[in-house]
Design a protein around this nucleic acid. Sequence first.
DNA 1: CTGAAAGCGCTTACAG
DNA 2: CTGAAAGCGCTTACAG
Lengths: 337, 337
Amino acid sequence: MQEKQPRPTSFDVARRAGVSQSAVSLVFGGKAEGRVGKRTQEAILQAARELGYHPNRAARTLRSGRSRIVALVVPDVSNPYFAAVLQGAEEAARTSGYSVLLAQLHEEQDWQHVVLDALTSRAVDGFLFCTLQPPSESIAQVLQGKAIIVDETYQGLPSLQLDVETGMQAAMEHLIHLGHRRIAHLGAAVDATSFHQRHHAYQAALHQAGLSFPADYLARAAFTSADASRAAHQLLTCPEPPSAIVCDSDVLAVGVYKAARALHRSIPRDLSVVSFDDSIIASMLDPELTTVAIPARTIGAQALALLLQALEEGTAPASLTIPLTLMIRASTAQPAG
Amino acid sequence: MQEKQPRPTSFDVARRAGVSQSAVSLVFGGKAEGRVGKRTQEAILQAARELGYHPNRAARTLRSGRSRIVALVVPDVSNPYFAAVLQGAEEAARTSGYSVLLAQLHEEQDWQHVVLDALTSRAVDGFLFCTLQPPSESIAQVLQGKAIIVDETYQGLPSLQLDVETGMQAAMEHLIHLGHRRIAHLGAAVDATSFHQRHHAYQAALHQAGLSFPADYLARAAFTSADASRAAHQLLTCPEPPSAIVCDSDVLAVGVYKAARALHRSIPRDLSVVSFDDSIIASMLDPELTTVAIPARTIGAQALALLLQALEEGTAPASLTIPLTLMIRASTAQPAG
DNA sequence: CTGAAAGCGCTTACAG
DNA sequence: CTGAAAGCGCTTACAG
């Protein structure tokens, strides 16, 4: 290990252990059981340890066609939600001997070719996609058996779904039980199924409770607290302002807090706030935020498990749905008066 | 592209373009200038396009010994700071044709062997290390020319330094100018150079201003707002409580906000707060947080640039120091009375 | 249970 | 400027 360039190969290990190179390969490939004798295996491991041998990944990949690397495709890792998904995925990958490569797609429309490159150059075995525009049909074809879509569905690619409807329903029931009748929705200005689902479930809940939905009870904001603040201000200054606001994400709730403070409305006395995520932000806000928890780390881990299932067993895994739980904290209360 | 298994190789491209396989390799390896005629190059690119050819990464890596993958080693990506470093690193890597693999080290003491594995198996070309215990001497040896340390120094490995001292000095001068005389330090209970530097600079600034430093003006907290809240409570309830608190990180500042609220101290009227990071948290807090910005994304990008310099040019890059800037917001004001 | 051999798809001297 | 050939270090049938 200290000399220059020992960089031992399986041949070196074989020579030292007095066995064939194939035996070494079998042992390190985990295919030794019933093929290589116990003693031989031990001799091989011993020799490998002495030499500091590790199989060359590139050679293995070239020969087997599998890199044991998967790519996580997200728009932006600095978003705490995606960072947590990545964290879960990395942990799950590691326990299975895989590694996770990050692929951020910022604004790129042409992400499809990035994916194709990675695949045809055999750099990665598979993909985890998080909230992106769905792939074109021809790409979806190529991705069969090599990709899991998180929180979207497309073209029969297996996916990890979030039970957003039930989550929103729980949030709305909570508010309605508290006595709220004027409930507005601050949505994310993102064209993704998950956000459409939130709005549909919101409307369904209103309808079921026999509540009305004035046109000015819907606002949309980009994924920043600044824009959310602007949108919330609009909601709070309409003729008959809501007593509660449901937000699509914790980041948006931050904007609501800011707008409320600027307008001298106290949370939760004058205004109740519920959102989605339960990111680090939720317990940092004051009062702490009532929010529908999206267990991002678990999602990353589960999605990765599905992907490995597809990759290793070749079985198209059934899509999985993750339930969401409402975390009731201090930002919701009975409406004043 | 639509048939099963076309998966063209450089031989297929060569055949189609009517040239030798080596010419194809030269073109895709970026070594064609002066070695392959312009026309030939175009013919090759054309043929490759038609076949949907991409060089096989594994073969390239096996032959050349370089994977064009680097690993980012961090304790925890769900921390917004590390997520931002990763973001910057990934962006910089991509523009140079590299990819970033994530290696989280949670609590593992034995990270050294993880690193060695990755290196001897030739899975990655190099490493970016973020705030970890320094490597043992023998490992540092192996890492020569293949690693950049962020915000630490060790064993002559090149590093990206943050000018923490100057940052802290700016924070302290700001408070002192405002008229504060009783300034406490809420530090991170993490044994890393960066945090030691913060405390030293804090003391130096007090000393320079002729201010005293009572023993109960130092508290340490784990990296959670809950623990920081506990520590801040302690600071705020000591016999002669401080009028300002300097925190090692935004996350800790959140704890101070919580403790202050619980004790009915208003920020900034009764208490000024300054911290380090300028993460998303800073502008989410109310009032917005005065903080020494640590440009994590830039740091990731710069560290990656240094690493590539070491990897590609073989020159040990000089260590680089990043200046830090104080962002003055609404959490600091003149002390009351 | 063990070994000899082919070959994955490139890069890179080397010869022309 | 171009081509033939060796070889990177494995995995995997295949023969014993």
